[in-house]
């Protein structure tokens, strides 16, 4: 009977320990997912912005020297990431491939003009900057005209900003929920230990001495929970990459590393602090208030 009682008690204790670890890991898993989205929202928008091309059509009379110096000049501009010269012939080839028709031999001559494809750095790819750049380019006598897809940049900037804000808001909310949830779980688990803590106090143990094993256990709980959360995240990333090959950002090791590491730090941090405060609460209590 006594044997049975003790093994039951031990089972109950172990299952409460496991469920604490799992609730920590689930919350951290959600945090990690949102963190990954947040870090990569910027990467996606950067990717689109950096591939946005401003085409600068040059007049036919522009010489190679003119073009080289203009390219150099543009490359020195702080906004510009990359400048590529597209001469008449390659422009014709590109268009031919798009149209599927040999229009040069049909027309008898190549009507296209040479151009420069200018790509901007992501952080400068705003409408104002582009307008400024255009104004500067048009003043150059060699430039016939410039154009880019205006609607694209507007919609991307707007949407990405909105989505990032929403995700950021959710992350902040989830962070609070995570803290409250983990804190609550740990406090409940420690509530069952309050009589033990009280007895320890009565035999002359100092607060630090009582606190230490609880803290070690709390930090380990957070660590185990975080490791489980990281494993779940890795599995999720693996399958996401397999199913949706466009998610190339998952191959980006630094940001994945940042997310996985911060999940672990967060787990240890929240769990450690919650344990510390919960134990302190029972340590400060007068013995009769325990009941």
């Amino acid at each position: 009977m006594a044997e049975e009682g003790s093994s039951l008690a031990r089972k109950a204790l172990r299952s409460s320990y496991i469920s604490t670890v799992f609730s920590i890991s689930l919350v951290l898993f959600l945090m990690g997912m949102l963190g990954m989205l947040l870090l990569n929202a910027k990467r996606i928008s950067d990717y689109v912005k950096e591939n946005l091309t401003i085409t600068v059509m040059l007049k036919a009379e522009a010489t190679d020297d003119d073009i080289t110096s203009m390219t150099k000049n543009l490359e020195g501009n702080t906004f510009v990431r990359n400048v590529q010269y597209v001469d008449k012939d390659s422009a014709a080839k590109n268009l031919q491939a798009e149209l599927g028709e040999d229009f040069v031999s049909f027309l008898g001559y190549n009507p296209l003009l040479p151009s420069l494809d200018v790509q901007l750095k992501a952080e400068y790819a705003t409408e104002e900057n582009i307008a400024e750049l255009q104004k500067m380019l048009v003043q150059n006598s060699l430039v016939k005209e410039t154009y880019y897809q205006q609607s694209l940049i507007t919609s991307i900037t707007k949407n990405i900003r909105n989505i990032s804000l929403i995700i950021l808001g959710f992350s902040a909310l989830l962070f609070f929920i995570a803290g409250a949830l983990i804190n609550n779980t740990i406090r409940l688990a420690l509530y069952s230990k309050r009589l033990l803590i009280k007895s320890m106090k009565l035999v002359g143990a100092t607060r630090n001495f009582i606190r230490k094993p609880f803290l070690v256990k709390g930090i380990l709980q957070g660590l185990y929970g975080a490791i489980i959360a990281d494993l779940m995240l890795l599995i999720l990333f693996y399958y996401a990459k397999k199913e949706v090959s466009e998610l190339m950002f998952l191959e980006d090791l630094p940001s994945t590393g940042i997310v996985l590491a911060s999940v672990i730090v967060l787990g240890i941090f929240i769990s450690g602090f919650s344990t510390y405060f919960a134990v302190n609460k029972y340590l400060r209590q007068r013995t009769e208030d325990v009941y």
Partner: peptide, 16 residues
């Protein structure tokens, strides 16, 4: 301390 043996009960006090 209900979670440990007689000896460990005493051992805890000595450690503490």
């Amino acid at each position: 301390l209900g979670d440990r043996t007689v000896k460990d009960n005493l051992m805890f006090v000595l450690h503490a």
